[in-house]
Design a binder for these strands. Structure first.
Length: 195
DNA sequence: GAGGCGATTGGCT
DNA sequence: GCCAATCGCCTCG
């Protein structure tokens, strides 16, 4: 009985899949301070970016393709793609054609596993950037289309209201002025410092 | 079928 | 700050 209560309590603390059935910008902002674990490895989300359906910077701008199919699938699932032929990037799918790119987390759980996977011990660089984060959390293409409210994902909402910085997105050539990058302030674990 | 390029990273200057 | 690495995706012919 005690175990059942514990399980129910833990489940009620998770983000429901419907959390993602909303405006992608709101979701990206509200994910700051949330905790993300993958197979128990992870920490607090400190940096996200929003990519909307008709956003010139978004993979979805030209409609569905083989790569971006997950963005046009059900909300509350992962969209994982390969970047520069080398790295993986993790997104949370929101309303059709939109997704939140997870750019950085503050390492908190099973940091030793992250250090092993990354091959370096500088805590500050373990998950500071979408490619680094995926390497540290063991994310690859196998998680594309995976539901976010099931194992191996555990995503819990921010427990407190956080101070959030809004700025320009990083590494894009279109839509550069749209301020859809969200960062926790203060945080030492961002992919790039705030201006 | 070929060519160009990217929501990045790490190493070197 | 500059640049190579590296390859799948997308566009065009």
């Amino acid at each position: 009985m005690a175990l059942c209560l514990l399980v129910l309590t833990c489940r009620s603390m998770l983000l429901p899949r419907t959390f993602f059935d909303r405006n992608v910008v709101d979701v990206a902002r509200e994910l700051i301070g949330a905790s993300l674990l993958i197979d128990g490895v992870g920490g607090m989300i400190v940096e996200t970016e929003a990519y909307a359906r008709d956003d010139p910077a978004s993979h979805s701008v030209r409609g569905p393709t083989q790569r971006n199919a997950a963005m046009f699938g059900p909300f509350g699932h992962a969209y994982v793609y390969r970047s520069y032929g080398i790295h993986w990037c993790l997104n949370f799918v929101c309303q059709s054609g939109s997704a939140v790119l997870i750019r950085a987390i503050e390492p908190m759980q099973q940091v030793d596993t992250m250090i092993d996977r990354r091959g370096l011990s500088d805590r500050r660089l373990l998950c500071a950037g979408p490619g680094r984060l995926c390497q540290a959390l063991g994310v690859d293409g196998a998680l594309n289309h995976a539901p976010l409210d099931r194992s191996p994902f555990v995503i819990a909402p921010a427990s407190l209201a956080n101070a959030v910085h809004e700025g320009r997105r990083i590494g894009i050539s279109q839509g550069v002025d749209t301020p859809w990058r969200f960062c926790a302030i203060p945080s030492r674990y961002l992919s790039k410092p705030l201006r």
